[in-house]
Design a protein around this nucleic acid. Structure first.
Lengths: 209, 209, 209, 209
DNA sequence: GATGAATGAGACTTCATTCAT
DNA sequence: TATGAATGAAGTCTCATTCAT
């Protein structure tokens, strides 16, 4: 009995969280109405408040639970690798795979950072920062091992890599919403990831040799 | 008289637009109160409505006038150049210079794109798209001229470049807001731009030769 | 079986009523949440509605049952007395004794009248009015018997007596809540009742003779 | 200009405050809807919030401004008197006069104390306490001057007097609301005050000598 | 009967916009 | 044209009541 009701409660919580994710991303946090989330989740407005004490708490829970999970998985995976290049590749590969599984997550990846100049300062726990730190750690390791240039500015580079990745995600997201106009252009997230890797490996120039 | 009042009117309009830019960036569009803009501009709330018909129109005007100007300047400048590499360099150089001159513009560069998944679809006139198109055009030209790899995916790459640039801007913006903690880390926008150029030229790897 | 379940049912009803009394008094009717009453009573929220059809009905039941009992007892007691002075004295004595036994009742005595200007008009059955009538009856009797002044305005005087009694109760209630500050001041309800009697007997003036 | 708009603003504030007084008293604080106050004041709901930051602040302002004024006036008046009896009389006389001028004030006199067991503890500034202290001071003075009995318990007596006065006010308030039923009974506040004085002077007993 | 999660009407409050001065 | 108080629609959240288990 307890088992069942607990399951149901967890299920509801998840349904609401997913609905919030979807709606926040669609309209942005401020423009999202609590009633929209409720409708999307198929519950009454009041029900939301049995699970989350406020609209804001819903947002914070999203970051914690969705992002947090990803970061943990990534950390676990790259802990088993040695080569920084492979680490970076694995990291992006995982992010891409996850995003393919959950479209909305991809979008909040943008929405999250978008608020960054405001958000980063206000919320102590910020998953994006964790993510950035992860990249920097790998870059530092690469420098130590002599794989990356000694003069590589890791602080700046982590932002470049992060931003570039974001650019890809955005590209992918937009490719669907503006699909009507660009019917011929089939965006492949994996192809895009490969492009990113190539650029960071050897730049834009032609002669690969 | 007409001359004077016209000048005054234009001046007012500009003051209000600047105040809006400043406040939208500080708080985000939704969190910005019209009263804040009015206070910042040093006029009464009602006065705003003599110049702009709504809060939203204020936002649209901002994009048109502020961003538009930059794009025009960039187009003019790179029209006089031949080498795609130099074009890209010039483009970033101009953006960086402009951002150094106007901090808020840098921030809206982030804030703008942040809303992208929503905005891009809703507003026909979007300056960010123009900017992206500009990058793509240069990349295509580079491919045609045999300077860039034949297999370069320009659609994806423009987003990578754009995102990477955004990463740098974000880095810069954050370096000031969190300056207290990182006193030792002096962020140089120009140094960062060089890092970006290097990476896009030859990647992360050590052997420059 | 019927016997047992009836007993249990009555017991539950009483438990809920007591919980309601306690909470209404502590927070006031409007500020009391049905969930608080349920918790205090140790039952589920829904259970309340098996015994009372609404929160309001709970309040009305309280007045009827708690107050009603007191009034009945008082009537019985003073029915056996002759002297109006002794009747008044007995009445106060009983009220005081009851209040000492049930603190919450004392408080609702205040809370009740507080709502009076609203309640008195809205609810036909009002126990306070009964109480006031009882006092007036005694005063009238005193006048008839020549014990009280012929010009005594019984309508006004009943309110004075009632109000004065209320003042004492309030004093007592407050003496405990502000006990920290006035450690030295030990409020005795019985001493206070005597003070009231003295004043109504001969006023404030010094010469008792 | 400033003069006029200031006047208008003050006027509005007063209108709202009066409407709040009227409605709080009629329904009680918790049961009063902000919309009712607005309607009563003849303004839009939002307008209230240009003058008071919340419903609660409206209540606190009422106590401060309405009660505060009365207490000050009373203090000034009785400061010019010597005889404690005359002081008490003057005090009641003033209260009665004021109440006759402002019916709602009379009612809040009840509403105020009604909440006492709850309110007194929560709000540091409480005008009722000031009023009670004033009575106690006079009683103490009377004892010192040998006018009142040496064994008079001033702490208790102040509550008795206060309560009795309240009883009269309540009586008066009720006499109008239940006027339909008691057409013949014409309540005179002044006659009632005299009754109160008589009782406190010499009690209920018949032989005035 | 008992439970407590779900419900949704309605409360307080905010704030873009209007309009009398 | 400039002002800023007034407006009221719409938002978030509360909580008495219902109802499936």
């Amino acid at each position: 009995m307890s088992r069942n009701s607990d399951d149901k409660s967890k299920e509801r919580r998840k349904v609401i969280l997913d609905a919030a994710l979807k709606t926040f991303v669609k309209r942005g946090y401020s423009e999202t109405r609590v009633s929209e989330i409720a409708t999307e989740a198929g519950v009454a407005e009041g029900t939301l408040y049995n699970y989350f004490s406020s609209k804001e708490e819903l947002l914070l829970a999203l970051f914690d639970e969705k992002w947090g999970g990803i970061i943990e998985e990534i950390k676990k995976k790259i802990g088993r690798l040695d080569d920084p290049n492979k680490k970076l590749k694995a990291m992006f590969s995982m992010v891409v795979t996850m995003f393919k599984r959950n479209r909305h997550l991809a979008e909040i990846f943008l929405v999250d950072i978008k608020q960054s100049s405001i958000f980063l300062n206000n919320y102590p726990i910020n998953r994006v920062v964790e993510f950035l730190d992860l990249i920097e750690t790998i870059l530092e390791e690469g420098k130590r091992k002599g794989i990356y240039r000694k003069d590589l500015d890791t602080r700046v580079t982590k932002m470049i890599i992060f931003g570039a990745a974001q650019g890809i995600i955005l590209s992918w997201v937009l490719s669907e919403s503006s699909a009507v106009k660009n019917k011929t252009f089939q965006f492949s997230l994996f192809r895009a990831a490969r492009a990113l890797r190539d650029i960071f490996k050897s730049g834009l120039v032609g002669e690969k040799r």
